[in-house]
């Protein structure tokens, strides 16, 4: 999508994101959600009552400006 808008390649977008991340200009967003602490089997980032096993894995990657 971004590659189409900027008339470039996916590889170009990926290397630019990597550069900005390495230079601490943007950072990868952690999508880990701690469990609610009340469900059965709720420990750390594993919470059967709130999310699938291993968390929400198919939400893609996100970066935010530092």
């Amino acid at each position: 999508m971004l590659a189409i808008e900027l008339d470039t390649t996916v590889e170009d977008i990926k290397r630019r994101i990597e550069y900005l991340e390495r230079m601490n200009i943007i950072r990868r967003v952690s999508l880990g959600v701690p469990g609610c602490g009340t469900c059965s089997g709720c420990e750390g980032s594993r919470c059967e009552g709130c999310m699938p096993q291993g968390g929400f894995r198919n939400m893609g990657e996100m970066w935010e400006i530092v």
């Binding site: 959600v33 609610c36 469900c39 009552g49 709130c50 999310m51 929400f56 939400m59 935010e64």
Partner: peptide
């Protein structure tokens, strides 16, 4: 923030989560 997506998603299950 984009991070807010996850709390919203989890809130469909449990607001505490």
């Amino acid at each position: 923030q984009g991070k807010s997506v996850m709390p919203f998603l989890v809130s469909f299950g449990c607001t505490m989560g």
